[in-house]
Computed example of a mutant assay.
Amino acid sequence: MEAFAEYSHAIASVVFFTLVVLFLAPFSALAKQGKGLAPGATPEQDYGDQAYRMNRAYLNGTETLPAFLTVVVAAILLGVSPFWVNLLASVALVARLLMLVVHLSGIGKPNSGLRSVLYVLGWACMFVIGLMALVAAF
């Protein structure tokens, strides 16, 4: 287990991201239920609707979490530099958390501005972690 201690920030980032997604699940369900929607239904695509934004924030997290987990775990198992894995995983997490704030507050338009910048920042961090893992594999 000592080998993994160097990656504590990256591991904590994955766990924290997972907890955030799990935390969002019931709130998304309650928001949809408040609109009279059946379980699993998607609210109408209206960024002005809190239930829609809550659902998108939850779904966005569930869509991104597997990729985040995969690249971080691969990088750790392949012994990629702990400094870079920790830094990039932490930045990706912060970008996702800020994106969540943007989603839930309804700041800006749905397909532009701060939300897009934060998405790309998190995506780029995960992409680089994945590339480093591939380089380490070969």
Score class of each variant (00 low, 15 high):
73 V>E: 00
131 L>T: 03
110 P>A: 11
2 E>V: 12
13 S>P: 04
81 S>A: 13
56 R>I: 11
99 M>H: 15
78 L>Q: 00
114 L>D: 03
51 A>P: 06
80 V>C: 10
103 H>Y: 15
7 Y>M: 03
29 A>V: 10
132 M>T: 00
50 Q>R: 13
63 E>V: 03
24 L>H: 11
18 T>E: 06
51 A>Y: 03
10 A>M: 05
95 A>E: 07
73 V>N: 01
6 E>N: 11
50 Q>W: 07
123 W>M: 10
108 G>T: 06
53 R>P: 05
89 A>K: 02
39 P>E: 03
8 S>L: 12
15 V>M: 06
29 A>L: 06
47 Y>T: 02
63 E>P: 00
9 H>T: 03
31 A>R: 11
3 A>Q: 12
94 V>G: 00
69 L>D: 00
93 L>P: 05
59 L>N: 12
112 S>M: 10
138 F>H: 13
119 Y>H: 15
103 H>C: 03
102 V>N: 08
11 I>F: 05
38 A>S: 14
53 R>C: 05
22 L>V: 13
72 V>A: 01
110 P>V: 08
69 L>F: 14
64 T>G: 09
50 Q>C: 00
35 K>E: 13
95 A>N: 04
24 L>I: 05
52 Y>V: 05
21 V>R: 03
91 V>G: 03
127 F>L: 15
26 P>K: 04
22 L>N: 10
51 A>K: 02
37 L>R: 06
86 N>D: 13
130 G>E: 01
44 E>D: 14
5 A>S: 11
108 G>R: 02
47 Y>C: 02
112 S>T: 15
69 L>K: 02
3 A>V: 07
110 P>S: 09
14 V>R: 02
81 S>E: 14
127 F>C: 09
137 A>D: 06
92 A>R: 02
18 T>N: 12
43 P>I: 08
48 G>L: 07
124 A>F: 04
60 N>I: 09
128 V>G: 00
66 P>V: 07
114 L>N: 03
136 A>K: 04
135 V>K: 10
97 L>T: 10
35 K>D: 09
128 V>E: 01
89 A>H: 07
85 V>H: 04
114 L>S: 12
50 Q>H: 13
49 D>G: 05
116 S>W: 06
63 E>D: 15
26 P>N: 03
92 A>Y: 02
48 G>C: 06
56 R>Q: 14
71 V>T: 07
126 M>K: 04
98 L>I: 12
10 A>K: 03
33 Q>E: 13
13 S>Q: 07
66 P>N: 08
1 M>F: 10
1 M>L: 12
82 P>E: 05
89 A>W: 05
21 V>A: 13
70 T>P: 00
67 A>W: 10
54 M>F: 09
25 A>L: 15
59 L>G: 12
7 Y>D: 00
80 V>L: 02
82 P>K: 08
13 S>A: 15
135 V>M: 09
36 G>V: 06
128 V>M: 07
63 E>I: 07
